[in-house]
Write a protein that binds this DNA or RNA. Structure first.
Lengths: 224, 224
DNA sequence: ATCGACTTCAAACACCTGTATAAATCATAC
DNA sequence: GTATGATTTATACAGGTGTTTGAAGTCGAT
């Protein structure tokens, strides 16, 4: 059993995964050819088929990476924010999320790929949901629930959370349009993102508080 | 000058446009083949080349249709809503928008196609921006501006508008994921959308009012 | 040094795609 | 009815795609 040979292939395997992640995120599954990936990774054309059976096998593994990264990243944000009081927790969550999403300095292949799968899912979307989204649903809900003064089964919890998350993700997803609508030379600098985050925070906190003052209508929750 | 001949080709031309609109919206530019379109439209393979020069020519014309439809649709909503007092105007805007976006009974190829171009633009995105978005920017801004008690050059106007629009569009764009996260059998029925709209309205109105109480930070506006 | 595994390589295959072309068909105008 | 121009048809082409294959290479264990 020569397991050093595995060492070697791990190298090109990883190289393929890294290159493929960026290319898939940037151009989408169908816009990227195996030949491009292999050339960029300095590997032979047949490498993808050898290591991942086929193009879709490679893609699925890339999505898996993205889901794991997303989970880790969301958990990090929540860890950072959790010791603070509820209001500051929300503010921090929004700020960190937006920076992660919008800062041009951030590696963002993961977000791009997930945005792609969100609006235009492939069979790999289940991976993202199971490993990237569901694990943090509860913690996210608690963050909002505390501000609302209710528990997770209150429908307002996920409605409000979606309103917050929606604003953040919308800025990411509509970036190509926003950049064309904004004045020439506009960029999401750190200061701009900070200001944006502050706006979303103020806006959302007021929204949450307003809804906290109302009775909850009976409605459905989330699958867990 | 045989101009009745034009009549005839208008027919297959229109048939091609209609079929292509749905297919492009559903599967994206690269997932749809000319052969599929022509077969679905009952036209010959060469029909696309004859009537639209090439595949991209057809696509651009479809996007043009979508941009016009979007402009018209947004204008209709604003027309419907404009005579009402500011709060009801916002509520109606959100309700009509969400119904248009989420109701499964609505023809939604236009929204799907625009969502596609928003997150993943082709050269045709400019058409959407120029003919679909920009014409209504000012009216949208006025709607929010009135609630804020400021004018269009106040950066809070478009920030708040984007927060509202962002929530609405987010529900549309993340529909594939939402449907998987929601309980089995969940659908965007008219009642569900109404409830959702009411939430977005309450949430956003509170957000806007909260920001109206603060001084505006100096910042950039929109390209016009 | 040799064996045997794992890995890489170059080439080819089969398929599908957008596009072009020339013949056939159609509807109208004279 | 025939000529004319617009439209449709069938077919062919050139390029690119994912995938396969068998030979060559690599490297550690014996």
């Amino acid at each position: 059993m020569p397991e050093t040979a595995v060492q070697l292939d791990v190298e090109t395997r990883q190289r393929l995964l890294n290159v493929a992640a960026e290319l898939f995120a940037e151009h989408g599954f169908n816009h990227v050819t195996i030949r491009e990936i292999c050339q960029a990774a300095g590997a032979n054309l047949a490498a993808v088929n050898y290591h991942f059976r086929d193009k879709l096998g490679l893609y699925k593994e890339v999505v898996q990476m993205a889901a794991d990264a997303m989970n880790k990243f969301k958990a990090e944000i929540l860890d950072t924010v959790e010791p603070q009081p509820p209001e500051e927790r929300l503010r921090g969550y929004i700020r960190l999320t937006l920076h992660r999403l919008l800062d041009p300095h951030q590696e963002s292949w993961m977000e791009k790929l997930i945005a792609r799968e969100t609006t235009d899912p492939t069979p790999a979307i289940d991976l993202i949901i199971e490993k990237g989204i569901k694990p943090t649903v509860e913690r996210n809900g608690r963050m909002v629930g505390e501000l609302l003064g209710t528990t997770l089964d209150d429908p307002r919890v996920w409605q409000c959370f979606l309103s917050v998350q929606g604003q953040c993700l919308f800025y990411k997803m509509s970036m190509p349009v926003t950049l064309r609508m904004a004045p020439p030379g506009f960029q999401y600098t750190s200061e701009v993102v900070d200001a944006l985050a502050e706006h979303v925070y103020q806006f959302s906190l007021a929204g949450i508080r307003a809804l906290a003052a109302q009775p909850a209508p009976p409605q459905m929750g989330w699958r867990s």
